[in-house]
């Protein structure tokens, strides 16, 4: 299945040029690792960066460093690079290799509500990266965010603001978006989510819960 919701060109550029924090970068890299179209766009961006760099000659470069570098070159054997451990044991669906190294061997799920569990994968530069498990048929109460929310579906799917998101699909929301995603009725939904913000419940009951929780 091809993803139908993609990161925009400016987000891909931010990622490829290294101007996006690591947590959302992991989500973009994972999406691009299973989306041919975005992978092609990344190729375009990388060629563009390389072409621009190719014009940056430095006439005053001191080539005496070459000897130093040459002395550091070692004979390279034919050994292959070490393989990434497969952490699929934790899940019954395929975790893209790009994401695998961020998944710990054991999981400490934290119950966010009766239908949502989360586990933190990393946090850096104000953004955290979490894996979310939304119980089949569960609808997350209506909420907004105080910042950005990057999401990619790993397994299952959800419907949000009349759009359907399946494996590989990407979504980016900011503080202007209010939403209430609902997982497929027949399957738990797993997502990777990166936020630099807090969730603010906005429904009538949600506003009451805000008062208790935050």
């Amino acid at each position: 299945m091809h993803p139908t919701h993609h990161p925009s060109y400016e987000i891909l550029l931010d990622y490829a040029a290294g101007n996006l924090p690591i947590a959302p970068s992991v989500i973009i890299a994972t999406h691009c690792s299973i989306c041919q179209d975005c992978n092609d766009t990344l190729d375009t961006i990388n060629i563009t960066g390389a072409a621009l760099m190719d014009d940056l000659n430095d006439d005053i470069f001191d080539f005496s460093s070459l000897d130093k570098v040459l002395s550091k070159l070692e004979f390279q054997s034919n050994e292959n690079d070490t393989k990434i451990e497969n952490n699929n044991g934790v899940f019954d669906f395929n975790i893209p290799k790009t994401l695998q190294k961020y998944i710990p061997d054991s999981f400490n799920w934290k119950n966010l509500s009766s239908g949502v569990k989360t586990a933190e994968l990393l946090t850096d530069d104000g953004f955290n990266l979490d894996i979310y498990k939304i119980k089949s048929g569960y609808q997350i109460p209506k909420h907004t965010h105080t910042g950005f929310e990057y999401t990619m579906v790993l397994d299952g799917g959800f419907t949000d603001n009349q759009k359907y998101f399946a494996r590989g699909d990407f979504s980016l929301l900011d503080n202007s978006s209010e939403h209430s995603p609902k997982a497929d009725p027949d399957k738990d939904c797993y997502c990777i989510v990166s936020m630099n913000s807090q969730i603010k419940l906005t429904g009538p009951i949600g506003r009451f819960i805000n008062l208790i929780n935050f």
């Binding site: 290294g18 690591i22 970068s25 994972t30 690792s33 299973i34 893209p96 290799k97 790009t98």
Partner: peptide, 16 residues
Amino acid sequence: RKQKHPIPHTEDLLNE
């Protein structure tokens, strides 16, 4: 950064 820049793994596309 403290952590390495994540790069799409080439095997993933082949697996899809």
